[in-house]
Amino acid sequence: MKIENFKTDKEALQAMTSCLIGYMERKTDGHPFNLALSGGETAKKMFALWVEEYKERIDWDNIRFFWVDERCVPPTDPDSNYGHANELLFKPLHIPEDHVHRIHGEVEPGTEAMRYSRIVKEYLPRHGQLPYFDCIILGIGGDAHTASIFPDTLPLLTDSRNYAVSQHPGTSQFRITMTGPLILNDSPLLVPVLGAGKQEMLEELKKGYSPTNPTPAAYILTHAVEAVVYTTTV
């Protein structure tokens, strides 16, 4: 894990986007670039920046969009990760619908987790026994959860399924999340950690994963082949 610190959120997201562009430029196999997105407030800032500054600087037509996780709500619900991305990114950039592989949050969670696992398995190339993303953009919450793997759902870090059902410990909202083995299947991880209140969490992340620091984010960042955290808080 590498942590890069910046003065502003915008500078952090610009640096992260430059790294993403580098990954895209180094992919020369002629196949689309498979990118997994996360949601949340940081994602909203990222989408706005991409539309404002990178409309002509990124080959959007070459990207196929997937999701790290999704809330189990319809796409019109304010909680929908896809809903925000559709309004803030896909529509403004005229991304074709068939380039976006959304998680259907309105469907029964267990059924949809199985369907999306199958979609990812069928569409993506493999690295070893599991599908492989060209890049995964992860968020980290103040409680050090990542994707929708929370401190009380740690078994999802080693779950053999590609996607599984999780539940938010505070709201009890069901979510569908990528599991640890798929996140860690050699994909580079770009991790923007912005916003107030995350200083203490980041200090704990620097210590790595251990019995005294058994958080989802610490586990993922400790075991990742390549992970860069972009932040303004340390």
Rank of each mutant, 00 (worst) to 15 (best):
residue 159 D to S: 12
residue 119 I to Q: 13
residue 116 Y to S: 01
residue 128 G to L: 04
residue 196 A to P: 07
residue 192 P to H: 03
residue 132 Y to W: 13
residue 137 I to M: 15
residue 208 G to S: 10
residue 126 R to F: 15
residue 169 P to F: 11
residue 147 A to E: 02
residue 129 Q to W: 08
residue 191 V to M: 09
residue 134 D to S: 00
residue 177 T to M: 14
residue 147 A to G: 13
residue 143 D to N: 15
residue 169 P to T: 09
residue 168 H to V: 09
residue 153 T to I: 07
residue 189 L to D: 02
residue 125 P to L: 10
residue 188 P to G: 06
residue 162 N to A: 12
residue 125 P to C: 09
residue 188 P to C: 04
residue 195 G to F: 06
residue 210 S to N: 10
residue 187 S to Y: 09
residue 153 T to A: 12
residue 182 L to C: 10
residue 196 A to C: 11
residue 165 V to H: 00
residue 138 L to T: 02
residue 140 I to R: 01
residue 201 M to F: 11
residue 213 N to Q: 12
residue 185 N to H: 09
residue 180 G to C: 05
residue 133 F to V: 00
residue 190 L to Q: 04
residue 222 T to S: 15
residue 124 L to P: 01
residue 167 Q to W: 06
residue 121 K to N: 10
residue 186 D to T: 07
residue 210 S to W: 07
residue 136 I to H: 08
residue 157 L to P: 06
residue 150 F to Q: 01
residue 197 G to E: 09
residue 123 Y to K: 14
residue 134 D to G: 00
residue 206 K to Q: 07
residue 122 E to C: 09
residue 129 Q to T: 14
residue 155 P to T: 05
residue 195 G to M: 08
residue 120 V to Y: 01
residue 203 E to M: 13
residue 163 Y to A: 04
residue 207 K to R: 14
residue 195 G to S: 08
residue 210 S to E: 09
residue 142 G to R: 10
residue 198 K to L: 03
residue 215 T to P: 04
residue 159 D to M: 11
residue 188 P to A: 06
